[in-house]
Write a protein that binds this DNA or RNA. Structure first.
Lengths: 219, 219, 219, 219
DNA sequence: AATGAATGAGAGTTCATTCAT
DNA sequence: TATGAATGAACTCTCATTCAT
């Protein structure tokens, strides 16, 4: 018997059931939160019997971790795909933020689930922020080396920009993002908000100039 | 505030018990999270009988709301007190962030509790961010009118700065803030992080100059 | 210290408080039933502090018993007063039933409370039915001796008539007795029901005749 | 009937458990009354785990309603079976009352449970009396049309007779019906009581004669 | 006499998990 | 693989009663 319990599917039918459970779990965790997301609720949404859950997952925490892992992978893929095509750092930021907000608008689960992870599964949370941040940091470091970033600390800048994305997303995607108006938001948030944010990002991510020489800091 | 349920204490003894329960609730919510914060746990920590809880609060959600409300009031008081003495906007930002990180270091409950509020009590969460943001926004608008702020949208800037504070605080106060090293952090986070953050803030909050004219956005 | 605990009032104020509690208890027991009638509810309705209850009554069961006792005394007084003035047995029945229904209409508590007494306080219940029945039985026995009653067993007849009163009262006073229409019911129930009942009573309570000689039974 | 909640059993084992719970509930409700009939008590008596209760019933009130419904169906079946074989109305009454008292003697739960229903579940109570009464009324109306009933109102007569049965049953079956003496009571109550009751019933349910013409009433 | 804070046993109910089918 | 019946620990909340003031 392998480590993870009764987990890996061995038939096509099993794989399908497993996928349905994962999707249902994502929905339910996002809808009602981890504590109120009962296994029955998940299995009912998935259209399978209660007992079936334990055929595919060892328990509630494990499926939660997997949902977080999935969302993390998908949001990073979306952001990377968008940013990679950009000619310079500022364009990459614009593309990355846009992708992030659009992903958020389509998968509110990301936010709602990650924010609860603190108590449910701190590892999952750290993994989520960790993976995103390390990629971000590398990109910024590279940009700085290429003179595309002002004299700011790439690590701190990465956390600042991520924080900006989080709260702007919370405010204008989750709190105010009605499906009706979303069509008018090509970047996930209202255009004027996106542009205002880009203005600020441009101040941070800007080619080094002589007259602006902030203190440089290292860890 | 004292609207519903068996709430307002009528004797000095009652007021003392109520306060003990509030403090215990803050601790327990921060320690184990809302769902695992049972009433027994709270009353045991407070050193009172289980039934006593319901003499003072109608239920679990209500005491949670009150804890959030309290923390919100206290953190805003701390930030306002610090920022009010500052000569200009940048100094105010420095003082405000410092106060915020120090408060966070001493009351990790703030973070841990607010982040859970999404499902437990969305109103409490919106109230929390709302009150902080509206103050912040006003201060920035005033600063802009006085020429102390670059041509950035004050509302969006406020959310960006708040997001920066949140994630920096999460990363360097909650995840890494051991009591041992805290003495060496006069601003709540390691000095080099604080200065790196201030560098970035300085880019955003900077006197208007002619050569930097980002697009201006209105709601 | 006397048997009944802290019960007998020693001042005029105390007596007033006690009476208010009794009335409140009657109302609350009738409204929500014994199990849901909490002491707080009673004291709130009475307009006194919770602790005051235990100054006047040893406990919940005791006040229940006293409420039953009171209602019993009052309904019997009403029925006796009405029946005593009647010239013959049939007239006495008519007056007695009328008094009973009218009392029921004004004090639905009687019914609702007595019916619950079975489990709360069997003694109280037996006392209630016992006192009413024994008076009834004596009256019927006397009537029989005076030739005003057919050859029916007075004991059984008393229980039959009481049962009739109970269900007719339940059906046409409690279930259907709206305050609005009550003015039109001089006997507590709709006139046609009352007369139909009297027709039946007249069959039971009728002067002995030669051709109707039912078997006579003794206990 | 199987409308709401986690109710209908899908396996034979489930059906057995459900039946055991119903029987246990009937016993416990009758023994200690609704408010003191805790779910633990019921499940212990049924010999199943506490949680099992909620697999089969949504809650306490629902099982109560079902118990009442069951008893109602059974007592009506017993009475109907007995009365249907009778040649005339008086014989039907005799058979019906006998069946009713015997059922009561064997299932004291009926009484004890129905009497509490007032507060627990008024609908259940009304359904109970309603179904019995409507059948009774129809039978009496038919009898009257066939000249087998004196000039009495069938509706009121039905309630009167039912009331008689209730109180006679309460007095001589519940209060005095010891298992020891029951063998000597072929009709559920002591023979002399039964005959005395039948004497009275005979006065009400009697062929129309010219010399007895009480007022006739209609609704 | 009057009060309300304090208490803990016990209530109904939920739910992650196990297991026989 | 899939299922749903079964379980009991743990939860939130109620309330009759005690007691210091």
């Amino acid at each position: 018997m392998s480590a993870g319990g009764a987990t890996a599917p061995r038939t096509a039918r099993g794989a399908r059931t497993r996928a349905r459970l994962l999707q249902a779990a994502e929905d339910v965790f996002a809808d009602v939160g981890y504590p109120d997301a009962s296994i029955v609720r998940i299995t009912e949404k998935a259209g399978v019997g209660l007992g079936t859950f334990y055929v595919h997952f060892p328990g509630k925490k494990e499926i939660f971790d997997e949902v977080v892992h999935d969302l993390n992978r998908r949001v990073r893929a979306a952001m990377t795909a968008a940013a990679d095509a950009a000619p310079d750092r500022l364009a990459a930021e614009r593309a990355g933020f846009s992708a992030f907000f659009r992903f958020t608008a389509e998968h509110p689960a990301l936010y709602r689930i990650v924010r609860q992870a603190e108590f449910v599964s701190p590892e999952a949370m750290k993994e989520h922020y960790g993976t995103i941040l390390s990629g971000y940091e590398q990109a910024l470091t590279r940009a700085r080396d290429e003179g595309q970033l002002g004299r700011v600390d790439p690590t701190v800048a990465a956390w600042v920009l991520m924080g900006a994305g989080e709260l702007i997303g919370m405010r204008w995607v989750l709190w105010e993002g009605e499906a009706a108006t979303r069509a008018a938001h090509p970047d996930g948030v209202p255009p004027h908000v996106f542009e205002a944010l880009m203005d600020i990002v441009a101040l941070i991510v800007a080619p080094t100039t002589e007259d602006r020489t902030p203190r440089r800091t290292e860890e």
